[in-house]
Design a protein around this nucleic acid. Structure first.
Lengths: 145, 145
DNA sequence: GAAAAAATGCAAATGAGTTGCATAAAAGGC
DNA sequence: GCCTTTTATGCAACTCATTTGCATTTTTTC
């Protein structure tokens, strides 16, 4: 998603110390074309360092708590993580392929909620929202693209 | 959500035999004010019959497959089930309270996607979509309603 | 009413995520 | 610089919604 973000500053701006591992996690998420599962992040990290699975979960949790990373739910029972929307990356919807599990970011223009201060009619105070389109991606359906 | 649906016909219309258990599941979902977890359905069933948890899962799976019931993901790691949108019940968004886990249906007018045939720009064929607002419901925040 | 098909039950497995506690690394004080 | 305190990481074991395999009903079909 991003290339030229200063991840150190991003993290420390929200009071998260930028350790090597954390920086690596954030860089992986930042360079990923689509939101990743914790497992995928873990596998990517293992490629060039030794790290524990639990640590990855804890780092992701911190980043989400700090608002730097977004935790997105899917049709399967796992979560995906991606850079949170910010000035450079507007909020956007996702497409989820129920066959291969790939989650794709959709252009922000396409599906955006008319949003702002929580409407008084709502049952609570809204902190974030998700729009997810579920279906089958082109790669997963051979016939009649 | 619904009161006067003919659940037998609804099920058999999509080729699902209407057994006692299945009918009971569908009735429970139909009368529920908000989507329920499998566990909640199970507990409701246990009140007046003997049924196995696995059976509940399998029934829900069939109903989802038949398109009669919708399976909705949440901020936690479980799914909620509710009557699928149909002629009487238009598609609608949900509000999810991250504290108590309550999931509320929002009026269909409020958040609807400009939707129709899958746009050619999308990475796949869309079968359904979810809009979920996450936050904290009024009951869960004492101060400043 | 018997054979075949479908539904249900039971026990055990799965797998993403979490917790508790021990160890290592970084931050502060002097 | 050392020592104390805090924070981050590692390891093992646990949780809990959901799934799977297989045995046992129950329903359908002939």
């Amino acid at each position: 998603m991003c290339e030229r973000c200063n991840y150190e500053k991003l993290m420390e701006g929200v009071g998260i110390r930028a350790t090597k591992h954390r920086l690596a996690v954030l860089r992986i998420l930042g360079n990923a074309p689509s939101p990743m599962t914790a497992q995928e992040v873990f596998d990517a990290l293992k490629a060039d360092r030794s790290i524990n699975r639990v640590t990855v979960y804890r780092i992701l949790e911190s980043l989400v708590e700090g608002g730097v990373v977004d935790k997105i739910s899917t049709g399967d029972r796992s979560f995906r993580y991606g850079l949170a929307p910010n000035d450079n990356h507007p909020q956007h919807a996702h497409f989820y392929c129920r066959l291969c599990g790939l989650m794709t970011c959709l252009p922000p223009e396409s599906f955006r909620l008319p949003f702002g201060i929580p409407s008084p009619g709502l049952p609570g105070v809204v902190e974030k929202y998700e729009i997810r389109l579920d279906g089958v991606c082109h790669r997963c359906r051979p016939e009649k693209s």
